[in-house]
Amino acid sequence: MGIMYRSRKKFGPLILNFTQRGLSSWTVKIGRWSWNSRARAHRVDLPGPLSWKQDRSRS
Rank of each mutant, 00 (worst) to 15 (best):
M1E: 14
M1Y: 13
M1D: 12
G2K: 14
G2F: 14
G2E: 15
G2N: 14
I3G: 08
I3T: 14
I3C: 05
I3R: 13
I3F: 08
M4V: 09
M4F: 09
Y5M: 15
Y5D: 14
Y5I: 14
R6L: 00
R6N: 01
R8G: 00
R8T: 01
R8Y: 00
K9R: 13
K9F: 06
K9G: 09
K9I: 10
K10E: 12
K10L: 07
G12A: 03
P13E: 02
P13L: 02
P13N: 01
P13M: 02
I15A: 00
I15V: 08
L16N: 03
L16H: 04
L16S: 00
N17R: 10
N17T: 09
N17E: 14
N17C: 12
F18Y: 15
F18D: 09
F18C: 09
T19E: 05
T19M: 06
T19D: 13
Q20C: 11
Q20K: 15
Q20V: 15
Q20R: 15
R21M: 10
R21E: 15
R21I: 06
G22P: 06
G22S: 05
G22E: 10
G22D: 08
G22C: 07
L23K: 04
L23E: 03
L23R: 02
S24C: 11
S24E: 14
S24G: 13
S24Y: 12
S25D: 02
S25Q: 04
W26G: 01
T27C: 14
T27L: 10
T27N: 11
V28Q: 06
V28F: 12
V28W: 08
V28N: 05
V28C: 05
K29M: 05
K29S: 05
I30A: 11
I30D: 08
I30R: 14
G31E: 11
G31T: 13
G31V: 09
G31W: 11
R32V: 05
R32G: 09
R32P: 07
R32Q: 11
R32A: 12
W33I: 11
W33M: 10
W33F: 15
W33R: 10
S34Y: 01
S34G: 04
S34A: 07
W35S: 04
W35L: 04
W35R: 11
N36G: 01
N36Y: 05
S37E: 05
S37I: 11
R38A: 15
R38C: 07
R38E: 13
R38N: 13
A39I: 07
A39W: 06
R40H: 02
R40L: 01
A41R: 00
A41N: 00
H42K: 04
H42M: 05
H42D: 04
R43P: 03
R43C: 07
R43I: 09
V44W: 08
V44D: 06
V44S: 06
V44Y: 12
D45L: 00
L46R: 00
L46I: 06
L46M: 02
P47D: 09
P47H: 09
G48T: 04
G48N: 07
G48W: 09
S51Q: 07
S51H: 10
S51K: 09
W52C: 07
W52P: 03
W52G: 10
K53M: 04
K53F: 01
Q54G: 06
Q54M: 05
Q54E: 07
Q54V: 12
D55P: 04
R56S: 03
S57M: 14
S57P: 13
R58P: 08
R58D: 14
S59G: 05
